[in-house]
Amino acid sequence: MRVNWKPFVLTLVVLLTLFPFVYLVLLSLASQWRFPALLPGYFGLDNWRTIWASEVGLVSSFLLSTLISLSVATVSTLSGFLISRSVAYHPRKRLLTLFTYFPYLLAPVVLAACLSYFFLKLGLFGNVTGVIVAQFMITFPYSLIFFSSFWSERTKSFEELVFTLGGTRRQAFVKVLLPLARGMLLICFFQTFLISWFEYGLTSIIGVGKVQTLTIKVFLFIKEANFYYGALSCCLLIFPPVVLLYLNKKYVFNKLV
């Protein structure tokens, strides 16, 4: 008789998927875990209690990351939505779209390195505004490409219909275009939020260590070999997206292909 292996493999896949989350939480609760012990010397809430202390600065990093990512996501989603319209209805649409692919594909960290001269000249080096502007430069192309599929002939017909029914440009936008794009706006906001939330290289270069977002903190802890705080900051980094994913999972992938 043949053994049905599928349930075992599936269980393994699920366990592997959940493993990092569980392991990072457990590690964030541990300390004094020296080689070759299988279990840590201490296991409890100590690390989590100390993050409230100011010298670790994790709470302020969390708030800073939230502020930066919310700003970047809001600005790039809205500007991408509005500006992609001009691109999509332009006769040379293909050429313009190709231009958006260049910064989209280039490693953000390399873009940042080549732009750091200009950021320095503009006084945007080593401050939060600079990091927001720099991150916006990489999320904007994403948002543009994302919305290019929204501005179809059908969308144009909807707009024209509102005009012939006596509506103004503003009414067409508020009453029809925005509601039609609602799902896409939500996904784009989520995706650009994630790009910003997870961004490390570009932030480290434009922020020069002065703008300490969560990803920068994780790096610092790895460098200091402080793995317990490292795991703790990893937890802060991955659980907000998990919650967001849970909230709008049904939207996230429908528009990807």
Binding site: T17, P20, L24, Y200, F219, L237
Partner: peptide, 10 residues
Amino acid sequence: YLPLAIPGVV
């Protein structure tokens, strides 16, 4: 969907 929440650093 969970792995989407894990960035390169982590």
